[in-house]
Amino acid sequence: MKIKKILCFCGSGLGTSFVMEMNVKKALKNLGIDDIEVEHSTIDDVMPGAADLFICGADLLPNALKAGMAIGLNNMVSVEEIQTKLKQIFEQEN
């Protein structure tokens, strides 16, 4: 499945999720990908179909997996971790 939309989420949808969105955008840029939409939101918006890939903190990963493909992050300020995990997903999917 071609990933077109990524949703980063946390409990409140305005702090942690935004930090992840920024870093996901940076990681995509580093990977030379410019055709994926990235948004941030709250856990309430996490449902099947809301995005092709969900990204959150490792503790919320079980919630994300109920909605679809997901990545859980240990370090949300690390562009490197996000980039490595995104690369794995893209290799699986393409």
Binding site: C10, G11, S12, G13, L14, G15, T16, V19, T42, I43, C56, G57, D59, L60, N75, M76, V77, S78
Partner: peptide, 23 residues
């Protein structure tokens, strides 16, 4: 109470926390 129900989502990196709730 958010942290109690959702887990420590405010810890965003090594030694860094971002305490916050909804508006």
């Amino acid at each position: 109470s958010n942290i109690e129900s959702l887990g420590p989502y405010i810890v965003i990196g090594p030694y860094i926390a971002l305490p916050h709730a909804r508006p």
